[in-house]
C-alpha cells in the first residue's frame, strides 16, 4: 500500500475569523479521480488552496504528497477558477501556458527550442495548438479554460487540482476535457481533484466524490454520498436525491 496523496486529520480552517472547514478527516490515494461538489461558498476553492499551501489550517494535520503543503511545489498542477480577462491583454496563449513551466523563475524567458516544444506539446494535449499565437483576451472562456489545464500539466505533476474546469465549456468540450483529465489520471497515475457543479458529466470517470457543505465534508463513492440521507445529514435540512438513468439530480438544496 503506497502513501496516500492527500491526508487530512481533523483539519479546521478559519478565514477572517469565519469557520470554513470544520474537523475534516480524509485520505486520497495515488491515482484516484476525485470530484469535489457542494454549494457556492461552501469552501471548495478553500479546500484546494489548503492543499496548495495558500491557506493554513487553524488546527489539524495535513500532508500532501507526504509533506506539509507549501506554495511553489512543482509536483502539484493547479488550474484556478477561470475569471474574465481583459480583451486587450497583451499576452498570447503560448505565454500563458509557458507560465506553468517557468513563470515563477526570476529573469527573462528567452526563446528556446525545448521550452517551445514542451509548450506546443501541452497545447496539443488540450487540442489548442491552433490557438498558440492568439492573444488570450480574444479567446472564449472555454478556450481559456483549456489553456489553464494545459498550463497545469506542464510540470508533469503527481497531483492535479482543477477548480471548476468545466464551468465555461459547452457539452462537447466538457466531454473532451473530462476525457483529457481522465487520460492523464489513468495513464500517468496522477491524482486528480476536480471541483465541479454537476457530477453527471463526470460520473463515468470519478472514483469518489467529496461533498462539502456547511463546513463539513462527506467522502465516498457517488452512490454512497449522493443520497437523500447522506446529503440531508450534511446540509442539516431535507434534501432529495433523484437517481435515474444513471444521472443524479439533487433537489431541495442549493447545489
Amino acid at each position: 500500500m503506497t502513501e496516500p496523496s492527500v491526508l487530512l486529520e481533523q483539519i479546521s480552517v478559519r478565514l477572517e475569523g469565519r469557520p470554513i472547514l470544520q474537523d475534516v478527516s480524509l485520505s486520497i490515494n495515488e491515482g484516484e479521480f476525485i470530484v469535489i461538489l457542494g454549494p457556492n461558498g461552501a469552501g471548495k476553492t478553500t479546500f484546494l488552496k489548503l492543499l496548495l499551501g495558500l491557506v493554513r489550517p487553524s488546527s489539524g494535520r495535513i500532508e500532501v504528497l507526504c509533506r506539509t503543503p507549501e506554495r511553489g511545489q512543482q509536483a502539484i498542477g493547479y488550474a484556478p477558477q477561470h475569471r474574465a480577462l481583459d480583451a486587450d491583454l497583451a499576452l498570447r496563449a503560448r505565454d500563458l501556458v509557458g507560465f506553468g513551466l517557468d513563470g515563477h523563475r526570476w529573469g527573462i524567458s528567452w526563446p528556446n527550442r525545448s521550452r517551445q516544444d514542451k509548450i506546443d506539446q501541452a497545447l496539443a494535449e488540450v487540442d489548442a495548438l491552433e490557438l498558440a499565437d492568439v492573444p488570450i483576451g480574444q479567446l472564449s472562456g472555454g478556450e481559456q479554460q483549456r489553456l489553464l489545464i494545459a498550463q497545469a500539466l506542464l510540470t508533469d505533476p503527481c497531483l492535479l487540482l482543477l477548480d471548476e474546469p468545466l464551468a465555461n465549456l459547452d457539452l462537447t468540450h466538457q466531454q473532451e476535457a473530462v476525457a483529457l483529465v481522465e487520460r492523464v489520471c489513468r495513464t500517468r497515475s496522477v491524482t486528480v481533484l476536480l471541483v465541479a457543479h454537476d457530477i453527471n458529466p463526470l460520473l463515468s470517470v470519478t472514483d469518489r466524490v467529496i461533498y462539502i457543505a456547511r463546513g463539513h465534508t462527506a467522502i465516498g463513492k457517488p452512490e454512497e454520498v449522493i443520497t437523500s440521507r447522506s446529503l440531508s445529514q450534511l446540509y442539516g435540512s431535507p434534501v432529495e436525491v433523484v437517481h435515474t438513468q444513471d444521472r443524479y439530480f439533487v433537489l431541495g438544496a442549493e447545489v
Binding site: L52, L54, R71, P80, D95, F99, L148
Partner: peptide, 23 residues
C-alpha cells in the same frame, strides 16, 4: 526589471496561480 520580468508578468496575469507556484 530584468530579474523580476517573468514572475511579474505571471503575477499580473493571475495572482492566485502565481502565488500557488511560489511567486
Amino acid at each position: 526589471i530584468a530579474v523580476m520580468a517573468r514572475p511579474l508578468l505571471f503575477a499580473s496575469f493571475d495572482p492566485d496561480l502565481a502565488e500557488a507556484r511560489g511567486v
